[in-house]
Design a protein around this nucleic acid. Structure first.
Lengths: 355, 355
DNA sequence: TCTAATTACGTGTACGTACCCGTAATTAGG
DNA sequence: CCTAATTACGGGTACGTACACGTAATTAGA
């Protein structure tokens, strides 16, 4: 003696009952497969509408043996690019969550100082016939070519950490570079006195990443422009990332401009600047930089770095994979752009921060 | 001709096969039900360990008709307590996600100015026999009594937004008040000059919430103490929350101390201070306060508020419900304390902030 | 030592969906 | 009008887990 009343049952079974057909036929309609007469199909569709039928995702995933392959194409992790450990962690977290639902993630790494490695890995991905791609488009030209192929093969792709607009990516997940620079400028402005100068430092070997840094610099300058106080902004480009090069350049710049009151480093290499300031016992210069790296945190703790701007790199990786999952499995629309929050990390709140 | 090789199958079936028992017996062990000899139980547990068995949540929820009832006990949302809209949103987000898994959430609201309303609602919850509780323990005495009953009934409960330590709650999810004050002090310190005074303002009617505010004040003062610069900290208690009262008190205090350079408001009512400063066109005082309310954001935008400290209230609600879910459904251990990040919101990054 | 109670386990069905396979109904071809 | 091809559909099993029910094995009681 079953009681089905009081609970509104929907589901394929109910649809089948109302349409006087079998479950299999309903299933055919739902998946738009062939083998159903127009008449029954229309009838079933009407009933689906009427019941506002929502498939049970649990049952669907359980019954479907379909395996999806996602590819990830990001920079390899090295001393130079420790940053990418965090997104990778996020990706692996998503991987472990999605594993049991038939999602397999294949990782491809390229060398950020070698465009050809990007091309190599990209073509490997295309050969392996994946269902979705998460890519960090560090090299613009090469990325464009890659995504063009993806479009032809109808493989959705998500950009992470840096965006190439208007490229029909499923979505972009990462920072708004301009505004992170703008915010940094505001922070710097708190300590700037009338005659204090501000120093912007770009530390990067590779030209391609450079536009990334430039965008932050633009934001930084824009703040002072907007507030009519574009007083004394100097800039230093340092094209070698080893400490000695950085120290040498810094030494020179600060010799010429002894009245620098704040330094804005446009990427995570702020720790080498901190190291220099510590060594020169210049501890009255405000120092702002990027990213929650161990080395940076250390200098944050001992007071040489004042602010770190951080944009949840781990979550970027996690969300990137999840966007693919939502699109391909759950068939849900995803936001075209997901800007990460611009977090301000200090000595006092870094212990509570979650990437 | 099935092929099970190359895929590492786990699942109850595999466990049963290895242990030479039926699936039902494995199931009994997994759910710690009776009817299994110690010997087989230990064996099965060992195999579970070895395989690192993770139950398939999809199948589990699909097969289980069990319905769980969670109760939420938080302050009602009013003009006075707009803050609680955000946690409620988070709770409702969790609700919609968990609905299809057979979780029902019942909401109970109390009046933050009326302890008896708390007691009333609490006893209603106990009468309705729920499986888990999320509670904001605003009134300490009454909360203790409530949680004592919960313990007797073996109903797990989660504290949200403010903690009562050592109360055997499943966990606490919310801010670390002390450190948020400490951080605020650091921010304030950037603008403080030698003779500049700093003003701490507590605005609250109700005594109970007051210890909440005090803890922040302690953190704030501690920073200056730790940095040997406990220069000129004044304090004002304002016990009426309407604008006129606030304005009157402020007027008086700032008359006596015209050299105040920074103001720290220990809760979300910072907007009324901002309003006063705007009205008096005193725009060279640094103003720091709490919470991502519409009114506060407005004053942040026009520059009257410099920093807002925010602790993801929406996420607090979401995580609180999820903690119950994880404990009761997934049977996973949850962290005893989950401090929210201490986020710094400014004019520049508030657009990117997610509660 | 025999029966009753208790314990320890296995069998089978259900959850809602996917999809293979078989077959009845229809249409086409001669 | 009969056979072959095609189309339209139903039956049944699987996914991994939960749980009701039945039964064999063990223990207790006298």
């Amino acid at each position: 003696m079953k009681k089905d009343n009081d609970i509104e049952l929907s589901g394929v079974k109910e649809i089948a009952r109302r349409a006087n057909v079998s479950i299999a036929t309903v299933d055919r309609v739902i998946h738009n497969r062939s083998g159903v007469s127009k008449k029954t199909k229309d009838n079933i569709l009407a009933i689906i509408q009427e019941l506002d039928y929502k498939p049970n995702i649990l049952a669907r995933r359980l019954a479907s043996k379909k395996i999806l392959h996602f590819a990830v194409l990001i920079p390899a992790i090295s001393q130079e690019t420790e940053f990418w450990q965090a997104p990778l962690n996020g990706i692996e977290q998503a991987e472990s969550e999605l594993k049991q639902y038939g999602i397999i993630i294949e990782k491809y790494f390229f060398d950020q100082n070698d465009r050809s490695s990007f091309v190599d890995q990209a073509s490997k991905i295309l050969k392996n016939k994946v269902d979705g791609i998460l890519v960090a488009p560090s090299f613009i030209e090469e990325s464009l070519e890659f995504t063009k192929s993806c479009q032809e093969l109808k493989i959705p792709y998500v950009f992470i950490n840096s965006d190439i607009p208007n490229q029909d990516s499923l979505c972009y997940i990462g920072p708004d570079l301009f505004h992170s620079g703008y915010l940094s400028a505001h922070l710097a402005n708190y300590t700037v006195e009338k005659n204090g100068k501000i120093l912007i430092i770009n530390i990067s070997k590779e030209i391609d990443n450079y536009h990334h840094l430039l965008r932050k610099e633009e934001g930084f300058r824009a703040y002072f422009h907007d507030n009519n106080s574009s007083n004394g902004i100097i800039k230093a480009d340092i094209r070698q990332t080893d400490y000695n090069s950085v120290a040498a350049e810094l030494n020179e710049v600060l010799m010429v401009h002894p009245d620098v009151k704040a330094i804005f480093v446009t990427n995570s290499r702020v720790f080498s600047v901190a190291q220099f300031l510590e060594g020169s016992s210049m501890n009255n210069i405000l120092l702002i930089g990027y990213d929650f790296l161990k080395e940076n945190i250390q200098y944050l703790q001992n007071g040489n770095i004042d602010f770190l701007i951080c944009q949840k790199p781990q979550e970027q990786g996690y969300k990137g994979i999840m966007a693919l999952y939502q699109n391909l499995v759950l068939n849900v629309a995803v936001d075209k752009t997901y800007y990460m929050p611009i977090d301000i990390i200090t000595k006092e709140n870094h212990k509570f921060y979650r990437n």
